[in-house]
Structure formats: structure tokens, C-alpha cells
Design a protein around this nucleic acid. Structure first.
Lengths: 352, 352
DNA sequence: TTGTAGGCGTTATCAT
DNA sequence: ATGATAACGCCTACAA
């Protein structure tokens, strides 16, 4: 176990002080003569010196660590990261990691666990900033603000206060999806999502969906607006209920299309419909939301609302680092554009 | 920006020395009288004191940080984590995070990027141990060994030397999958995977597949053994080639089943087959490998070889922490059991 | 331009 | 049982 080489070793090797070594590393090129600078650099190379971030963190009060907070499965379960159940988080995390790496930061992840104080997690590692994925519990957020650490909220209500937020115009997106369906002749359109009142994102999408119907002189049917958990299983359960509605409805009055506020929900719903022998898209068309890679895997491919997940992750990390490094004046509230990605889960309605 | 409370503050508040505070925190209950112990604990509570892991790392030479190294997309691409393309890594990472959290460690992730020295990444943060997901580049591995840090290799060749490894008996698994297909009447079975010679895992599965055929008195056809990247796209390309073979083969001699060495490959292959109007499973049955959640999303559901991904992650983190804490005598090489999970992508072959 | 010295928050050693 | 104090490796005034 050879002891790791420290700045002191480098200093001794060159015949200068540790301060000089430190200056070479930090002060881009001020304060140190070009000659000694080169000698120090050479020694660093030769000795394979690598500054210790732990010590540096302590001295500078800056860790170059970005905390990413991931939602976990609802209680009752084994309490694992939702990361494993919804590809959405993996894509996002991937984008975050990429940008963070580019800018010299490391990413550390954890689940948003209720019992444990999140603030402590952030404090004990002196994290420079954190990114919340998914819904952020209000109390945690307040804890964080007290720490005066840059925070980026993904997909939450824009008005969450003095943190950055990045999402999209969910109202518009919901409207867009619904209009897409109507443009293809659908009039009876169901809406499937997670809790509408508990999630501003779902609410906005719901309102957009409602608005689109209204503008077209249509109304939504309460029994076609379903809420359950944002998961495959939730989607499956809702799909089953839709299947029931479909079966018992009369000719010309049945659902012909579904707008699901998350791809993962659409996956579950489609599975349920198909098990009930209802054809997608021939009998019921489906539009999802997210544009996960998985949409391509399904047959038929899922037509959905793209929100550039990966890029969103990149952006989030970028903003966070910008703020950390003092390059930002005020809080940024970004609304990313969305667009419909057409695949094969939508077709014109057919008489029952 | 209130300055964070340190051990010194606690000490002053109680009227003892920092050493005593430290002792209360670390030495379970030795060396400190029960009375002062309680007083210190009370102060910690009142002041919301939280030990600083950064400082602790420096002093103890232990960071309580676990590094997880994730493969990245092949060069040429935007060089992002494979995490975003294959749900496999998300499930694994989720398991790792869970167990790490339970045992008081934090997880820090990064892509295995060629240019950057991995060793430096590990050293600069004083990581206590690392877990490699996917294929591990040999040079990196050697760099790591020189650091004398516990390493867990996932799904690599068991003989990688003095690191822990965790995988399964891929030979048996391959054989199992192939036998499953043969038991349902298939005789002409294709094999789709990533590089067979470049990945011991694929090689073993391939050999198992060969062995099963051989034992049944069958032989594999070279034009049905395909290699491409382990990705949806790779699977898609191979599926296209299989479709070609299928079309040009004569009655009674065509492929009737495929064994894909990864679910993600199976997804791509199925997509290609279906686009070429070949029905799965009626015309070609498919067996995958991994048992990703996504297998359930597809229609038909993908019959596959389950390898308990999440649990594997939990185990990996467990072993790593055990080693870090000196609870392990020697290197552990674990072979997890596998089993077939039946869904709907396999049925008896049908005459063309 | 370079070196000295104090400090970042903890732990560990050794007195008391 | 408790307290001083020296590390840990680095940064940053300030002094030379």
C-alpha cells in the first residue's frame, strides 16, 4: 500500500513550497513564473500526482458534487429507486451525468426517503447543488432552501419559489395531444394519469386535454378520466377499467382513444386492453407522454409527446453548475418545447 | 448563510472538548461516561449537528463512497451512459443504491470513458470501493488493482483475478434457454448476441446453446449465429438478417426460434421480424435474457431467462461493503441461479 | 515570484 | 473519563 503522493511530495521533488504547487494548479497562470510552473507541471506528471478532492473540499468549502434525488417506490414496497421501474429517470440521469462530467462535477444519487432528513444528506457531503427528479416533497424543499444551495426542480410546478425549474408547458402539451387525436377523428377520448390534484404536471395536462375538447365543442366523460399511480401497474389497472367501459358502451358512443400522461402508463394500459381483446390502435388509439426509448420497442410503436428527456438532463446539470459558479443572475424557469412523435398507436376511429 | 454547526460548537455548548464529542459519535459507548454521553447527544439534537463527511474522510482515510462505473455508448455517438439505452443498468444501479444506502454508503456514478484515467477518478475522491457494470477494460482494471481498493465485477469473466465477481453460469443459462426451445419442438434455432469472442459472457451463452443442440443431435447453422452490438438497434439489424434467412429458406428447413443473449437485443429483433411481416411467436419464437421489466410491456410478453438483476445489484453492494469493512476473507466469486420466465413469445413451431 | 503559517472539521494519540 | 494537540491534504492570506 504505497502512500498516495501529495502536493508536499511534488513540492519537495521540485524544490518549491506547497503553496507554489497549489498556485500552479489553481491560479490559471498568474503568480507563478513560467519556468517554475513548467517544472511543477513536469513533476506532477512524473509523480502521477492527483489533487485530493476531499481535502480540497474541506479547504474551499466546495465539493464539486451534484446530488441527484430520485423518487422511490411508494411505501409498502421494498422501497427501491423508481429508477428501476421507469426508464424515464435513467434517461434523465444519463443526461445529467454527461453534462456534470463535462464540467468537472461528480454525480451522487439517492432516493428521496421520507424518514431520513434530506438536508443532512446534502450537508454531510457539502454538496454544491442538487437536482430533484419528479415530485418534490414540500418540507424537503424548504429544508434545502435553508441551506442556500442551488436547486433545480424537474417537472414540478414552476412556482416552486426560489429554485430553478425546468419542465414544459404541460397545458399546451396536453392540448396538443388531445388535438392530435381529434384531428384524426376521435371524439370520445379518455385521460389516464397519476393523481391529478396531487401533481401539478398531471393537472396541467388534464386541463389542456379539457380545453382542447371544449374548443372542439366536446366534453370529457368523468368515467373516462382515470387516476392511479404513474407506473406500468397503474396503467394496467386503468386499462382494465377502460376496457370495461368500452365493452358496456353502446355503438357510436364508446371510447376510441386514450391520452396517457406518461408512456409507462400507456404501456400498462395497452397491455390491459390487448388482454381484453381490444385492438390498439384499431379499436382504441393511444397517445403517451415522454417519448421513452421503449416506445420504439412496442408493437405497435407508441405515438407520444416527446419532451427530449436526455437533453433535459443535460440542461438541468448545466443550469445547476452555472448557478454554482455564479454565472446566473436570477432563477431560471425553463419551458422546453414538446412535439408529437408519430408511431403506430393511433389511427382513425372505427365504428364499433 | 449561517455557518454550519461543527463539533466544536457542540463541545462548547455542553462544556466538554471536541474529543469527547467525537468519542460519543464514534465509540459506540466506551470511553465516555453515560452522563456526559447523554448531554452531548442532547446538544447534538438541539443544535442539529451533523458530522461533516468531508472532514471525516480526510481524517479517517475513508470516504463511505462507492463508485459505480457504467459503460457508455460506443464512440461516434454523443458518448452518453448506456444507462439511458438499456434498462438493465437502471435496475442494477437501483439495487446497488438501495443496499449502499442501508449500510451507510453513498453512491457516485460515472461513465467508463477511455480518455480519462479511471484511477484518478477513484483516487481523487478516495472512494472506498468500486463496482464495474458490464465489460471492464483490462487496463482500467489493472490501474485499479494498484490502488488496493475492493472491486466488484458484474457479468465479467470469473477469472478476472483478485476482485470479487458476480454473475451466473452463463454456459448453463444458454443451454437452458436452448433446451427450453427444443422441448417445445424447435430444431432450427438462431443465436443473437453481442460480440462472442469479445465478451466471455456471450461466449459462454453461445457455448451453452451449442452444447444443448449437440446433445440433442442437432447442429447450429452458421448463418443463424449473429453478432452485433448489444442494443435495440443491434437486435433490429440482426432481426432483419434473420428475416432474410427465413424468407429464402425452404419449407421445413427455416428458423423457427431465436435465442437472444440480451432482452434488449430480442426487442430489436422482434421489431424487425414484425416489420417483415413475420409473426412472433407463431412463425418464429423468441427467448431473451435478463428479464427486464420491459419484457412485460411488450405484446407478446417476452419469455426470457431471469437473472434477478435488482437483487444482483443488492448483492454486489453488499459484498463490496463487507470487503471494505474487513468482513471478507477472500475474493468472492458468485454464480447466481437463473430461471426461465415464461411469457408469450414462444410456441411450438408451425410448418411454413 | 515565492514561502510561511493558519485553518477547514474530524479523528487519533497521548497525557492528565 | 476527559482534554490538548497533532495529523489528514489542501487553500489562501500575508509576509518576505
Amino acid at each position: 500500500m504505497k502512500p498516495k503522493v501529495s502536493a508536499k511530495d511534488v513540492a519537495r521533488h521540485v524544490g518549491v513550497s506547497v503553496a507554489t504547487v497549489s498556485n500552479v494548479i489553481n491560479n490559471v497562470n498568474k503568480k507563478v513564473s513560467e519556468e517554475t510552473r513548467q517544472r511543477v507541471l513536469k513533476a506532477i506528471e512524473e509523480l502521477h500526482y492527483q489533487p485530493d478532492f476531499t481535502a480540497r473540499s474541506l479547504a474551499k468549502g466546495k465539493s464539486n458534487l451534484l446530488g441527484v434525488l430520485l423518487p422511490i417506490t411508494q411505501a409498502g414496497d421494498d422501497e427501491s429507486l423508481l429508477l428501476k421501474d421507469n426508464p424515464f429517470y435513467a434517461e434523465l440521469l444519463s443526461g445529467i451525468e454527461f453534462e456534470a462530467g463535462q464540467r468537472g462535477y461528480d454525480v451522487i444519487i439517492t432516493g428521496i426517503r421520507p424518514e431520513q432528513s434530506l438536508k443532512d444528506w446534502v450537508r454531510k457531503r457539502n454538496m454544491d447543488g442538487v437536482i430533484f427528479l419528479g415530485i418534490t416533497p414540500e418540507p424537503f424543499l424548504n429544508e434545502l432552501k435553508a441551506l442556500h444551495i442551488p436547486v433545480v426542480l424537474m417537472d414540478s410546478h414552476p412556482k416552486q419559489g426560489d429554485c430553478h425549474s425546468i419542465g414544459h408547458d404541460d397545458f399546451l402539451a396536453g392540448k396538443l395531444a388531445c388535438q392530435y387525436l381529434m384531428a384524426r377523428g376521435h371524439q370520445v377520448i379518455g385521460f389516464l394519469s397519476g393523481g391529478i390534484q396531487t401533481s401539478p404536471v398531471n393537472l396541467k395536462r388534464y386541463e389542456g386535454y379539457q380545453e382542447a375538447l371544449k374548443e372542439a365543442g366536446l366534453t370529457s366523460r368523468p368515467n373516462l378520466v382515470l387516476e392511479d399511480s404513474v407506473s406500468f401497474e397503474g396503467g394496467y389497472r386503468m386499462g382494465l377499467r377502460i376496457a370495461q367501459e368500452y365493452e358496456k358502451s353502446r355503438k357510436g358512443e364508446s371510447v376510441t382513444a386514450l391520452f396517457c400522461a406518461a408512456d409507462i402508463v400507456a404501456f400498462g394500459a395497452i397491455k390491459a386492453l390487448r388482454e381484453k381483446r381490444i385492438k390498439v390502435p384499431e379499436e382504441i388509439s393511444v397517445v403517451g407522454f415522454d417519448n421513452l426509448k421503449t416506445c420504439d420497442y412496442l408493437i405497435p410503436g407508441l405515438t407520444t409527446v416527446d419532451q427530449g428527456i436526455y437533453h433535459k438532463g443535460v440542461l438541468a446539470a448545466g443550469i445547476l453548475v452555472d448557478d454554482i459558479e455564479g454565472k446566473l443572475e436570477a432563477c431560471r424557469h425553463i419551458q422546453l418545447p414538446v412535439r408529437i412523435v408519430e408511431r403506430d398507436s393511433v389511427c382513425p376511429p372505427r365504428e364499433k
